[in-house]
Structures are given as C-alpha cells and as structure tokens.
Design a protein around this nucleic acid. Structure first.
Lengths: 245, 245
DNA sequence: CGTTCTCTTGACCAGCATCAAAATTTGTGG
DNA sequence: CCACAAATTTTGATGCTGGTCAAGAGAACG
C-alpha cells in the first residue's frame, strides 16, 4: 500500500529576498543558465516547498500547474499499472528539474523519500520567463537531451542486463559515486527502500537484496549502514555494469 | 552479424527548389512549426539522403555533424553491449526527428530497415536557424518532451510487463494502428524482423514469434503477410497491453 | 530451382519470481 | 533507556516465465 498524503495548500512560501543567490543546487541545475544579474527574476517567481518523507509533490493525472527544481533531499517518480504493478521512473536529487514534459496533466506521480525541499514555479510564469530569457529555454532543451540519454541508458539496462549488472549499474549511477557531488568519496547513499530499487530496476525486492549480498560477499561493496554503501572496487563494479563478459 | 555498410559521400544532394513545400512528412514533423513563408530557409539548408535497406545513417561514436528528419521509410536505432547483446532503442518513421541529443558524438547507431529517405541538416546551420526562428526551438523542446514520455512508456513496458503485454503494446504503438497515418485502417506494417522486435522489447526472437502465434490463435490479430498484421480486436489488445488483469 | 535467410515450433533449462519465515532495524509509549 | 510492535531486510525452498539449443518450414533471392 502506498502513502497518499497530499500537499497542504499552505506548504509553500513565496520568498521575498534572494534565495537563488545562495542556492546549493544552482550549480547543478538549469538555473545556472540565468546570469547572476537576472537572478531576482527567478526569485520573484520561486516558491519554496518543504516535504516530509512520503509526501506527494503531485500525482499522475493532476493538472500540471507547476514546474519544480529539487534543492535538497530526494524524490521518487512512478507510474502504476491497473493491477498495482509499480514502475519507478526515476530518483531525483538536488539540481534535478521536474516538468520537462509539456503535457497538461502530470504523466506520473512524485513523492519525497526523505525530508526534501523543492523550488516551485507556476508553469505559465516560468514559460513567460523562458520566452524572455532565451538561455533558459536552451538550457532546458539541453537538459531534456540529457534526460533522454539517461532514459535510453535505463532502457538498455531493463531490456538486456542481468540482475547483477542492473544493481551494479544502479550503484554507479547514484550521485555519490559521482566525484562532483558532496559527501565522502565512493560512499553511495541509498535513501530508497529495496522495494523501490526493485521497481526501478525491473526486479523484485528479494532479488535486489540477494544481489547486494552477492556484491558484499564478493568484496565489491561494503555496507556502512542500511542507507550507505561504500564502493570498494569501482573498476570491478564498472566491468559488471557494462557487461564486459 | 550486423550489416556494416557506410554512407557514401555522394549519397546526398543539396536541393535548389522548394522540396519542403510538398514534403509528405511535414505535417508530422517539427518542420510544421516553420511558417510557409519561411520554408525557403529550411530548403536552403536541407539535403536529401536516400538509403538502401541495412545502410547506416550514422554509427555510435561518430562525430554528430548532422540532424535528420525522416521523410519516408523506416529506421532502427540501437546500441550494443560489450558481449554483443543488442538493444534497439527505437523504430523511426516518417516525421520523426533524429538529433535531439546535444552530445558531440552520436550516442547510438541508426540504420535503414527498408528503402528510406531522410532530410539532413548540418548541425551548426540548423542551430543558427533555431537561434533565429524561435518557434523551431520551441517545437524541438515539445518534441523532446514527447520523446521523453515515449521513453518512459517503454521503460514501464520493459520493467514490468509480460511478453504478451509487451507484444500487444508494440502492435498498438506502431503507426498504422494510428488512424491519423496513411494506410488501411487497423493494418499494422512490420518492416522489421522478429529479432529486431525482440531487441526492442527485451525478449528473444523465439518468444516474439511464439507470442504472435498466441495472438493469432486467439483471433486478436490476423497475419496478412509476413510484414503486415491486421488488428481484429483492438479493445482486447488494448486491455492486454495495459495489463487490465 | 537451389541457396540462404527468417520464421515457427519443440524440448529442455536457468534466472528470477513467488511464497514463506527468520533476522534486523525502526518507531512508539511507558 | 527499555520493551514491544511494526516495518524492512535477509535468507531459504520451490515454481514459472521466458531463454537456450535444435530442427524443420516458409520466404526471398539469385
């Protein structure tokens, strides 16, 4: 059963001052394309929304009134099949943008998986800004290209990789395996449950658990806590992930 | 083993006159966003390329010098894993655009699967036109959003659907099940091989063949020829595809 | 008309799913 | 801080979907 907590109307606050200027996520986000001098324009549109774990940002089918930029925490996006099978489309982290799809209603649901803050814009207002600040549209097009590339990578994983290869790929794709992001080198945070990993990787939670155990036994990774893994042998993991048979 | 025929340098011809004005694919393509009055600008940039079956448009890793618009025929795009496993990323038909990904090199290979014509643009020239004709950039962003939506649909299919559901979804997604496109109502063209369907759907060619046989036996589809299927019971097929258990 | 390629069908098998239960972690109230 | 309840993870036993291997039937092509 899935949490159905909505989003209270008063959760967001329009900010007066210049939040964007010291936004941690800006270097990773599309906002980076807006020059410092024009930041006040963004600030004027932005609302800050704070989410508790399990709280929904929006649900599949809701009118798509907003665009979002994740500033901290993490979010899962998912769709359901009629009989309850769930597919987690992606996990989003600081700097990720939500709302590239121009559809009138959200094509998927989005929920926080830990305490999370997002920057929210009214779609119409954001589009107006885009029409004016061309570099923002260009940045979004570039971001859309990146997302498409990531989606294709994931399709390859789902279509042709084994369970072992999927889990290895997943660990390497998470931020934290990424040297650019904050946190100790080589330590991967796993804020999501095994069940969520499974629904993302097209496996069952048992298979994910067993596979992680195999990787631990093989010394490729070491479990620091339930939500943190240390990658001990990145090259070996990469070889697995890429199916270098 | 896969065909490795390249693209001869003389395959393309810069056209003088106004090909775009009577282009069959224009209503379905991003070019529709360019008003008739400005069509000569597109025409000035466009080269027509003719491809024989199996001929490559480009290969993964090639410098991404061009963007393409498919005007007739069909194309497969694919990536390979180190040990030879193939993933077909998509099948493209008239009106489809290739090159949304802003990467410097092509992230996948593209080959014709039947006699095909494409409209080719130098990336730099096209970008220059985009910078000037804003509605083109907006149309591309919208197209990117559509592609992303399609990619997510495919990820759901690969992550959570059974073989039967995958094949049913595939038959319904092909143009031809689409009432807007030309051809007799309800007849689906399958210009690709069983092996290609399999590499697209994350199955084996045997499973695809067996599944099509099941659908035929069940009277949901009828085989007209090897490359044509008639959908006899669209609702039943749709129910299967959506997993309405 | 034979060669070759693709498709179909069959027999068997393996990887992952399913079902079930124990171990561990998390959360809550006293 | 501890005890207990609930949730998540891990591990085990078993089964099924779809993969693998193999052979035969159609199509396509020269």
């Amino acid at each position: 059963v899935i949490e159905l907590k909505g989003l209270p109307a008063d959760c967001a606050q329009r900010r007066g001052g210049g939040g964007c200027a010291h936004c941690q996520a800006r270097p990773f986000s599309v906002c980076a394309s807006v020059p410092d001098a024009d930041l006040h324009r963004l600030d004027a549109l932005a609302e800050t929304v704070t989410l508790a774990p399990g709280q929904a940002l929006f649900r599949e089918g809701d009118p798509a009134a907003h665009l979002f930029n994740l500033t901290s925490g993490s979010v899962r996006t998912y769709r359901l099949l009629a009989d309850g099978r769930r597919h987690i489309v992606g996990f989003l982290f600081a700097g990720d943008f939500i709302g590239l799809d121009p559809a009138e209603t959200y094509p998927l649901s989005a929920e926080a998986i830990e305490p999370t803050t997002v920057c929210r814009f009214r779609k119409a207002e954001y589009r107006a800004l885009m029409a004016e600040r061309r570099e923002l549209e260009t940045a979004l097009l570039a971001r859309a290209g990146d997302e498409l590339a990531a989606a294709r990578k994931q399709m390859l994983l789902l279509a042709r990789k084994t369970a072992l290869e999927r889990v290895a790929s997943f660990l390497l794709d998470l931020p934290g395996a990424d040297p650019l992001r904050p946190g100790p080198e080589g330590v991967v945070r796993l804020p999501m449950t095994r069940s969520e990993m499974a629904d993302y990787l097209g496996l069952t939670l048992e298979t994910v658990s067993r596979t992680l155990t195999r990787l631990k036994r093989g010394g490729l990774i070491r479990q620091m806590s339930l939500t943190e893994m240390r990658v001990e042998k990145p090259e070996a993991l990469r070889a697995l992930a890429d199916g270098d048979a």
